[in-house]
Design a protein around this nucleic acid. Structure first.
Lengths: 117, 117
DNA sequence: TCAAAGTGCAACCATCGGTTGCACTTCAAG
DNA sequence: CTTGAAGTGCAACCGATGGTTGCACTTTGA
């Protein structure tokens, strides 16, 4: 149901900042990204490898540079999964809130069995 | 802006399943949770420690048991942050999509400087 | 041709999710 | 009261991962 690779790829805070930078700058290399992040170039390169492996970025060799760009469609998929999990829990929380209110309203005789699971 | 501790706490798939179980069962202990999860009691206990540290669950000692329950308000906060990040990226993606369409529509003379950043 | 820029590879360290093993409290039954 | 089982906590260990440093390799430009 949930693509756990995609989730964990987006789950890392450094990778989220990298995606942010790549989006606002319209692409970049490991070196340019590391200049704007509190980590070394090698760490950035590893993260780019992870993002590339799940298809969130694409790489284009240009001379001695390797330019990375965000795959917007794939990122849209990841964002959709994010919000999907959010809305699922939101619904569950609201359901529990409704049950709690119903119980507190005094209907405490046969509440068990009507809405379990 | 973003509470990174909350995010990483919810980021772990096992912790998400634990929150799911705690919500649907209305609480539980490390032992009862581990019986319904593919990990040992000790692993569950560690995760409960993490969730407790960020305030997503509360613990109530009862005899030799330690019963954990979800703090629904805090979980609601975490879910809100999740969906907030989602909508932020969604907006950014849509803005980029609009720019790309405008450029491709043929306005390729002075597109630079009108909507950068 | 040669130095600087950009990258890749390898070794190393700390943290984390997970495990096993053992000691400690609490409850309940004899 | 004693004793054994249930529930927990603590410590050591293992593998994966995010991060670092060091070095070798290609490409560019003077």
């Amino acid at each position: 149901m949930i693509d756990d690779d995609l989730w964990s790829a987006v789950g890392d805070p450094t990778r989220r900042r990298m995606l942010d930078l790549l989006l606002s700058d319209g692409g970049g290399t490991a070196t340019t990204l590391s200049e704007r992040l509190p980590v070394t170039r090698q760490a950035v390169a590893k993260h780019l490898g992870v993002l590339d492996r799940v298809g969130l970025v694409h790489v284009t060799p240009a001379g001695r540079e390797r330019r990375y760009e965000v795959d917007e469609a794939q990122l849209a998929r990841a964002v959709a999964q994010l919000t999907a999990v959010g809305t699922t829990w939101d619904a569950r929380l609201q359901r529990i809130k409704r049950i709690a209110e119903r119980i507190q309203r005094g209907t405490a005789d046969r509440e068990t069995g009507t809405d379990q699971r």
